[in-house]
Design a protein around this nucleic acid. Structure first.
Lengths: 143, 143
DNA sequence: AGTCAAGTGGGGAAAAGTGGGAAATTTGAA
DNA sequence: TTCAAATTTCCCACTTTTCCCCACTTGACT
């Protein structure tokens, strides 16, 4: 599964090279979508199907469920690796995550996260400072 | 199934190109109708039948159920793809969703949604701001 | 320093989307 | 019932975008 943190460049055509060690896992298909905290989530097709069918089964008569499904499902896009091992990120996702040129690709076990380099630094700094407090909360959640 | 967000133009004749990857699913027939939050819903014939029978079985003694069923059933219209992969949207639906020239076609797994570009942006912005809160609720619902 | 693998950039062919005109069909009035 | 007007449908051609391929750069390891 995915672990590690890599920095890669997004080119003018919206292409992003996936770190070599993650490629084989994504060969059978992958899906990017809007994530939380201003980053993108990248799932293998398999992981995605699980999540998507849960989202699709939310009742569309509920306002919040509709909103969430729209963000995640309508935000999703099939991606595949080109011969060089790159994926293409659609405009609307680049804008959503305010992606500039330098992108951080982070492995989070069952998904990859794509961050704009600046947002990542900022988030990381904030999280490091709060880490002790957060840790205590996590302990309450059974970790 | 349908995922992703696409921007297409509605021409003067009321024609809208369906994104290529969705076309095969719609070849066997499709139905557009009034949706929620000022957009249109587009279903495959098959999915529509399922929904329509659910709507028809709503208790017609309830005011809200009647209104909802009327909105969706009476608004429904069969559509088919022309040789270029476009559908024609009837006037009353264009007006209902205040569709201008630029249309967003959004995949929501078992349906497509058609939005006026401006309404979509507005809706999305509002939803994104609330996304973290909503996400917590959703996870409580088992996602 | 040389070699190899990973990452980056751009040019050209093919496909998808768009717009308009011609043909066909419907509508309505005489 | 027939003709003209209007609307719809079909088809062709243009434009734009996407995708595929090739070549260069960079950096690590020997």
């Amino acid at each position: 599964m995915f672990i590690g943190e890599y920095s890669h460049n997004l080119d003018e055509k919206g292409r992003l090279a996936v770190p070599k060690k993650f490629r084989t896992a994504l060969l059978k298909g992958a899906v990017v979508t809007r994530g939380l905290d201003n980053c993108l989530f990248l799932y293998t097709k398999k992981e995605w199907e699980v999540l998507a069918s849960k989202l699709a089964s939310l009742p569309f008569s509920q306002k919040n469920a509709r909103a969430f499904a729209r963000l995640m499902l309508a935000g999703a896009m099939d991606v595949s690796l080109d011969k060089q091992g790159r994926i293409i990120l659609p405009d609307y996702l680049r804008q959503f995550a305010s992606l500039g040129k330098e992108i951080i690709v982070a492995g989070l076990y069952n998904r990859l996260e794509l961050w704009d380099s600046a947002s990542w630094d900022k988030y990381k700094k904030a999280a490091e400072q709060k880490s002790n407090d957060i840790a205590e909360q996590m302990f309450e959640l059974g970790i």
